[in-house]
């Protein structure tokens, strides 16, 4: 296999991590919403926390995007 082709394949595979991060973010907001619907009065206080969790989960997915970018442009 050509090195260039392998690079593109690797970058494509790395982006799968972003989809997995999307599952995590979806889980966080889904659970936040179901909790908020059970106890709407407590929802506002936990709003920032939900976003922090989503940001952390997203950050891990972003790493895989960076891996893809590095494979495409740097390696």
């Amino acid at each position: 296999m050509e090195a260039e082709a392998a690079k593109f394949l690797g970058a494509g595979l790395a982006t799968l991590g972003m989809g997995l991060a999307a599952i995590g973010v979806g889980t966080i907001f889904g659970n936040f919403l179901s909790g908020a619907l059970r106890n709407p009065s407590a929802a506002d206080g936990q709003f920032a926390r939900a976003f922090i969790g989503a940001a952390l989960a997203e950050g891990l997915g972003i790493f895989s995007l960076v891996v893809a970018l590095v494979l495409l442009f740097v390696v």
């Binding site: 940001a55 952390l56 997203e58 950050g59 891990l60 972003i62 790493f63 995007l65 960076v66 970018l69």
Partner: peptide, 13 residues
Amino acid sequence: ISLSLRLFANMLA
């Protein structure tokens, strides 16, 4: 690292 990469990658992507 995650703080900078998150912002960078979000805007870039």
